[in-house]
Design a protein around this nucleic acid. Sequence first.
DNA 1: GTTCTAGAAC
DNA 2: GTTCTAGAAC
Length: 263
Amino acid sequence: MSWMKALENYARTAPEELPKDILLSSTEHTVTVKDAYPKAMYHYLVLPRLPSSLVSSSSRISSLQSLLSGDKEDALRVVKILGDDAELAKSHILEEMRKKHGFEWDVNIGFHAVPSMDHLHTHVISSDLISPALKNKKHYNSFHPTLGFFLHLNDVLEWLTEEKLAGKLHINSAKYEGLLKTDLACFKCDEPFKQIPRLKEHLEDEWKKEKRTAVKQKAMKRVHGTDDGEAQRPAKKTKLASTDETPRTPNKLSEANKAESLA
DNA sequence: GTTCTAGAAC
DNA sequence: GTTCTAGAAC
């Protein structure tokens, strides 16, 4: 099965040899490429390059599970480096969003709990989940930001930094794979859907709605010098959605997984 | 991971 | 009759 090795090939190729249209950037330790079948408007992968001086054995970075089962300091170093470059890719995406669409929306950074392809890779993916390559339930659920299959990089960092977790961090594959069969529901409004095509229509509507709101707020800011004309009066408590990153509700399965690891 | 397609769902 | 899903791929 050669497709499983596709990412490993990227990781082993000198970045300057990679096609220009797929390479975003590279460093001593990482390479950032466009996902060949993007599941959102913007979708990149950050890979640790091979051979790697970050870990004693290359097999350590064949997967997240493998990384987590090894030395925690090694794992922490690798995840931090991937995270730094993922943040750079995210900044690039946000800039493209501003240029092309006149507003920014969320970009998620994380790992699939049970990946289909070999070699550790971090997804940097815009939260719209609008793309022709998103074709089935597995595709959608694997990037659903709160379902639990998508492991946010910051959560993985937390697992690794909690010193109590000196023991093992195990990913229960069967449990995570079960999540992929979850009934379809919009990650924004929770509305259920029976079919992928209907959900895809809905996601487009959600994105257009988000765009309208963002553009309207920008116009407000131009006129009033604030996000909202009313927000200037401190007496009136307006409940505005923060433009900053709102803390995500910790997903239950990640928490459950952590609890198991602690036990 | 994708492509293809039989047969289920509509 | 057409759309859609889900399992096989040597």
